[in-house]
Design a protein around this nucleic acid. Sequence first.
DNA 1: TTGAAAGCGCTAACAC
DNA 2: GTGTTAGCGCTTTCAA
Lengths: 341, 341
Amino acid sequence: MATLEDIAREVGVSASTVSRAMSRPDSVAAVTRARILKVAGRLGYQPNLLARNLRQGSSKTIGLILSEIQNSFNATVAKGVQDVAYQHGYSLILCNTDEDEAKEALSLEVLLAQQVEGLIVIPTHHTQRHLERVRRVPLVEVDRLSGQRGVQAVLADNVGGAQAAIRHLLDLGHTRIGALISRPGVTTATERLSGYQRALETAGIALRPQWVRMGNTLTEPGQVQGQQAALELLKLAHTGELTALFCSNNNMTYRALEGVQELGLRLPHDLSLVGFDDEPGFRFTAPPLTVVEQPGYALGQAAAEHLFNQLERQQPAPGGVTRFETRLIVRGSSGPVPGPG
Amino acid sequence: MATLEDIAREVGVSASTVSRAMSRPDSVAAVTRARILKVAGRLGYQPNLLARNLRQGSSKTIGLILSEIQNSFNATVAKGVQDVAYQHGYSLILCNTDEDEAKEALSLEVLLAQQVEGLIVIPTHHTQRHLERVRRVPLVEVDRLSGQRGVQAVLADNVGGAQAAIRHLLDLGHTRIGALISRPGVTTATERLSGYQRALETAGIALRPQWVRMGNTLTEPGQVQGQQAALELLKLAHTGELTALFCSNNNMTYRALEGVQELGLRLPHDLSLVGFDDEPGFRFTAPPLTVVEQPGYALGQAAAEHLFNQLERQQPAPGGVTRFETRLIVRGSSGPVPGPG
DNA sequence: TTGAAAGCGCTAACAC
DNA sequence: GTGTTAGCGCTTTCAA
């Protein structure tokens, strides 16, 4: 790997001149610069960012910590973040933690050691604890809240989205509506649950605890738990105790879909199903799913933009939550309550 | 940010001692070490990897370049890569290029400048050109082939997978089978196309060029093209000229699904559909889709393992292609040829 | 317009 | 066991 020194030696100037020729071209004589650039080209010179950043005390790098890279919502957020990072000339180091405590702690450590200038995190319920013991770098939370005080966060309007979903079901005549909620202790879950509750209360419908079940978020190992919760609720649909079901995220919706298939329920006749968070496949299920769509890409973008604002301002961020609207997409999985009999 | 020097000063030893206390504990007196660790803890010391890596001439970082982070297959590959990287104590910088030439060139430049020790790439048709002009670092290609000679690659058995899909359709009695192929010039597409052709030839069925259409890979901007190709083929199904359709990747399958919906075709009665690459949602379409599943996670893992082998060997890799088997999952979208009338 | 020198934080010889 | 020294590749005063 060619260095500045290599070029300098060959051209017969000092390393500083070569450096300047690169960074501030008009501070170097045109002829000198031309020769430098030519040699640099021939040698295939690439600056060593490790050295530059060490010297400048800045890494031009930000980190993104996600719990589930395979979740398409997370991937969409990541894309939003990355596009903005690139626009600002920053690279992005992306870490995937699988909701695993140790992996999250390690990711955080590595990112800080890599001298990232800022961090964007989709928090898990471990995050707050980890964050506390850590050097403070500018931080923005997306999608969920860690509980840490005074941080900036970019979230979907989860309460409103869930309310819209439930109101839609109420409008169709449903009053016996179940809720399949993902991992307890994660703010998206609790907020969506509270949207569900609030919508029912507003409609004057009593809440039945047995109509709400907690699953979990992760696709792979914990499937069982979520699957279990889904089945319990769907059995209530089978007996007619429930006529509609609200799922609090895409994984829960998949769990419900599995159960629907297993029990042979027909949507929306036997059950109206509304999910939170759209997925590419949800347009093609039978029938297509009614969902609350959240703007993942915009969330990612906004989070990154907030982070860069913090970086530019050089001062601690004011802290505060930005909410993005969700959108109810009515497709075929929700329909009127079937008449008696 | 506390440095070794800070700790050294406070403890009353030299920076080297502190460094040693961290890296080779038993080369330092137990008492000294204890004091050092205590102070380090209190100061919240985190090593500066920029400095360490600059000094050691190694970044303990590898790069992964993908074209489409939102494609769940790519995400799965990424997860495989990352898990292995972490096992080896390496961090992963992940770049997403959207199949865009400029973004790919930039990503490559940034990764090299960051001194990544190796690169894993899902190549696009720009990749080879970019690779040529670039400092050689150990490289492994996954999923597709750039065309660069002598590199290691980890791929699915695309020909075999496509053949299995087509044979399955032939077994069901289909002879009029269309193929919706993604972006031309990408090896996955050409290999799967050739699997399709080979299977038909073997069965003694003449190839009809009008039964093959090229779409494109990317989900967003180019949808139109893929959608167009899908519609043209599906119209042939409508008229009965085609009784089955093979889609060469998950995006093409989505395009076909859209067309099926738009034209009101019923699967598998009006058309048998087989896709290459499974997606979570494909189990819940109506009917569930028959697909060729490829082991994305294993591909990612293997690619990373090959890369680390190269890194450990210190010598240029032998170059060569590792193929992973695919698996045909028969679900409901493929069925016997409908009888005449 | 250019060069010399210092230093970012760390590690690795080499002394003692 | 521990300190001293040098240097990774770069940028940035400060002089000339």
